[in-house]
Amino acid sequence: MNLNFLLDSGLLGLEYAMLALGVYITFRILNIPDLTVDGSFTFGLAVSAVFAAGGHPFLGLLMALLAGAVAGCVTGLLQTRWGIHPILAGILTMSGLYTINITVMGSPNISLINSNKFFTFLEDALTKDGARYLTVGVIVLLCVGLLALFFKTSLGLCIRATGNNEAMVRASSINPNFTKMVALALSNGLVALSGGVLAQCQGYADINSGSGMIVIGLASVIIGEVFFGRRSILLCLISAVVGSVVYRIIIALALQLDLFDANALKLISAVIVAVTLAVPAFKTRFQNWRTRREAGKHA
């Protein structure tokens, strides 16, 4: 068995790490599963590819981040100002983004084979893989570091409280609509950055790359929690990154061993997420069942 696939999937995991971080922010901190993700991931992918094709790979990443943040703000406005249910707000933005994305790309896919990417400048010194590992690693570290710092500020604390007790945020004289907007912008910015990084790393962008991203993000967050639990914010951020890498390795391993067909990926991911989220419910049920059985014995 060739173990190179481990390195490859590790890199892929890092590319998707920002997706996991973004999903962590909405799903665990804000307590809203935000479905904008599928759309904003592709938005970032499209914007980054178009800029890279035009000779601006770094600007492409920055613009991807901003594009995602704007998408997040749209979902935020729909939720807070227009009073639309958070899940539906995400679906609406995601759905609308399809048109935007295809307009940005101009065609269903863009190839970047001959364009400079954000890691190209290191390729001569480090080989292609080395350059990608280093640059993506730095991006992930920056994201985790900056997020950890951000969540220690007053605004960061207010965002964490928003998902916990909105009334209390208001009582601290902060508008929870504002904190929700910031969190959604941040989250979708990260998700889009992930899409942007991925597009340049794989050398092409495809309009359908975003579908199912929310499930992959959730799976990464949940897998990370298996290793780290839910303690400090910094650990949670690191755990999302690790979760993303482990998820990729699990998938690659399973494909390598011919456990299932590549087409089954989405189904398997969905099952992983569903089962993990069901664990608390199953636990309670099992405990109730045991209590009843014990009671029956003594009757």
Partner: peptide
């Protein structure tokens, strides 16, 4: 810290 953020502190200053 959340309750204290009512004081004049800026949004991007350290919470704690």
């Amino acid at each position: 810290a959340l309750a204290y953020s009512k004081s004049v502190k800026g949004m991007l200053s350290w919470a704690l």
